Computed example of a mutant assay.
Amino acid sequence: MPTPDFVLALREKVGTDPLWMTGITAVVTRGEGANRELLVVRRADNGALTPVTGIVDPGEEPAVAAEREVLEEADVVAVAERLTWVHVLPEMTYPNGDRAQYLDLVFACRYVSGTPAPADGENTEAFWSRLDALPAMSADMLARVEAGLTDEPDARFER
C-alpha cells in the first residue's frame, strides 16, 4: 500500500520510532431490514476482508477522510453520518520495521452512489455483502462493523 507523503516526511525525521496516527474505519451500508448490505474490501497487502479503513491527512476533518477513503478505495460515494466508536489500536510493526499506533474513529456511513470496485490498488476486491451473510473477518474488524451498525446515538469510548 502506498505510504502517504506526510508519513514519509515524518519517517525521515524519526526513523522507525512509533508514530501516533489517526485512522478511520468507514462502515458503509445500503438498503433496509433483511436486505441491508455492508461494503467490504479485500486488502491487497494481506488479503483480509474489512470495511474501508484509512489514515486522516494532516488538517483533514475525520468525517471527510472517511468519505474520501471510501471513494478512493472502493469507487463508492458515501456520507459519514455518525461517529460510533473511538478506540486505540495496539502498536504495530510493519515489515520494514516502522512502528505506528492508531487512534481509530469508526463512522457509520450511508451509501449514495457507485458500484464497488478496487479503485486505487490498496484492495483487490470491493463488494456488497448482506449483513446476515458477512464473510469471515478478524474479531477486531467485526467489532468495528458492529460499532458502525449500532443504533446508539452516542459514540462508544473506551476507558
Rank of each mutant, 00 (worst) to 15 (best):
R82K: 14
V52I: 10
T53W: 09
E91Q: 15
E69Y: 10
F127A: 05
E61N: 11
T50W: 08
P135E: 04
Y94R: 03
V56Y: 05
E122M: 06
E67F: 14
V86Y: 10
A108M: 07
S113P: 06
T29P: 00
V88W: 12
A108E: 08
A48D: 13
H87Y: 15
R110P: 04
V27R: 00
V41Y: 06
M21K: 13
N46D: 15
G59F: 06
T25H: 00
Y94D: 11
V106K: 01
W20N: 14
A100P: 07
D104C: 11
D45P: 07
E72N: 02
G114F: 08
N35D: 15
L19Y: 11
G23P: 10
V28Y: 01
E81R: 15
V77W: 13
V40M: 02
A65R: 00
W85N: 07
F107Y: 15
W85R: 09
R110E: 13
L89W: 12
A48T: 11
L89E: 15
N35E: 15
L19W: 11
G47P: 05
R130M: 05
E67G: 03
L71P: 01
D57R: 07
V70A: 01
L131K: 02
N35M: 15
E125H: 12
P116T: 14
T25S: 05
P90G: 14
A126Q: 01
G31V: 09
R43M: 10
R110H: 14
R82G: 09
A44M: 04
L89C: 12
Y102P: 01
E60A: 03
A117F: 06
L131Y: 09
G54L: 01
A65S: 11
D57K: 06
L49R: 05
L39M: 06
P118S: 12
V27F: 08
P90C: 13
S113N: 12
L103G: 09
D132E: 13
L105Y: 10
A44W: 10
F107A: 00
W128R: 03
T124C: 02
T29M: 01
A78L: 06
C109E: 03
S113M: 14
D104T: 12
L39G: 01
A119R: 06
G23R: 03
V70M: 00
R43H: 08
N123Q: 06
A63G: 08
V56R: 00
M21H: 14
E67V: 07
R43K: 09
R30D: 00
R43I: 03
N96F: 09
L105T: 09
D132L: 02
V56P: 00
H87C: 09
S129Q: 04
E125G: 01
I24P: 01
L131G: 03
A80S: 09
T115E: 15
Y102M: 05
S113C: 09
P51C: 10
T124M: 06
T115S: 14
